[in-house]
Computed example of a mutant assay.
Amino acid sequence: MPADRTVLLTGAAGGLGTLMRDLLPPYGYTLRLLDRVPVPDVPDGTEAVTADLADREALREAVRGVDAIVHLAGISLESTFESILDSNIRGTYHLYEAAREEGVRRVVFASSNHAVGFLPRPAGEDAPPLPVEAPHRPDTFYGLSKCFGEDLASLYWDKHGIETVSIRIGSCFPEPTTVRMLSLWLSPPDAARLLHAALTAEDVGHTVVYGSSANTRLWWDLSSARALGYEPRDDSEPYAAKLVAEQGALDPDNPDHAHLGGHFCTNPPRWPH
């Protein structure tokens, strides 16, 4: 997809959405912003829609006329199953139905490392990176909703021809804040590079990729992301010495350190918080 196109950005008022509102337009995209709460500081000339994913009529109107969708909306931490069902599962279904009805043929879906959170983390310098083909092993209802989103995207490609890149995002913050995050960190500039690659690569069908920077301590295989044209430029290693000194090295005997999902496997943060 050429870069000079209109993209619907859902979850535009959230943490990642706020970062991408500034970082995606330089790639040539005109953004249409959507969130269930009013998006703050909307630039002049940018369209913003306040609507819930449960409002199918408003959602279809928001989708109408866009060239692609970057779907970041939904609950981003653990919650009750009912809340996750309404927001992340039904909401994502409503989004794909709106895309189908309005003829939008490219979606980038914000999946998560928590879709495979119970995979054992690689331990040791010689441990192979985790492959993207690993089976789903969700660590929470939140992670389960991301498994659903990936499989829904696969269905809509096979049945309706809607292409999706599902990105299993690690931790996207201005800088890593934990030792675990040194292996999963996705810098905001690299996140924009990855979204741009996912929006512009040809013939993606339904592709699943891991989303992180080129971290020295990387746990997973970025080859499917690189195949889209993604070239990460950042590395968490400059933050490593300080974080390890403050928090200590990862301990394989600590249940919070044993799996890819970290403390989501044992004591997940709840939403709202």
Rank of each mutant, 00 (worst) to 15 (best):
A110I: 00
S111H: 06
S112K: 03
N113S: 08
N113D: 13
A115S: 15
A115L: 03
V116K: 08
G117T: 10
G117I: 05
G117R: 08
F118Y: 12
R121I: 09
R121L: 07
R121N: 12
A123H: 10
A123P: 00
A123Q: 13
E125T: 15
E125G: 14
E125F: 01
E125I: 07
D126Q: 11
D126R: 09
P128A: 14
P129L: 13
L130T: 14
L130K: 07
V132S: 14
V132C: 05
E133H: 06
A134L: 04
P135S: 13
H136Y: 13
R137Q: 15
R137W: 02
R137E: 12
R137A: 14
T140M: 00
Y142S: 09
L144D: 12
L144E: 15
L144A: 15
K146T: 10
C147K: 04
F148L: 04
E150R: 04
E150V: 05
E150A: 03
E150H: 11
D151S: 12
D151F: 08
L152E: 09
S154L: 12
Y156T: 07
W157P: 05
D158I: 01
D158C: 10
K159H: 11
K159M: 13
K159N: 13
K159E: 15
H160T: 03
H160V: 01
H160N: 10
H160F: 14
G161P: 14
G161V: 02
G161Y: 01
I162Q: 13
V165H: 14
V165C: 06
V165I: 00
V165F: 09
S166R: 02
I167R: 09
R168F: 03
I169A: 06
I169G: 06
I169W: 13
G170N: 02
G170T: 09
S171F: 00
S171T: 13
C172T: 10
P174W: 06
P174M: 04
T177M: 10
T177N: 13
T178V: 08
T178I: 02
R180Q: 14
M181P: 00
M181G: 14
M181V: 08
L186I: 04
S187W: 02
P188Y: 04
P189G: 07
P189I: 02
D190M: 01
D190A: 01
R193D: 07
L194M: 08
L194E: 11
L194Y: 01
L194Q: 11
H196F: 02
A197F: 01
A197Q: 06
A198Q: 05
A198I: 01
T200K: 11
E202D: 15
E202K: 14
D203E: 15
H206F: 00
H206C: 09
H206N: 15
T207K: 06
T207F: 06
V208E: 03
Y210K: 05
Y210P: 04
Y210R: 02
G211P: 13
S212F: 00
S212V: 05
S212Q: 11
A214C: 03
N215K: 08
N215G: 07
R217K: 08
W220A: 08
W220R: 12
W220V: 12
W220I: 03
D221R: 06
D221P: 08
L222N: 11
L222Y: 02
S223V: 01
S223F: 00
A225T: 05
A227W: 00
A227G: 08
G229N: 05
G229L: 07
Y230R: 12
Y230S: 09
Y230D: 01
D234G: 00
D235P: 13
S236A: 15
S236Y: 07
A240Q: 04
A241S: 12
L243D: 08
V244D: 00
A245H: 03
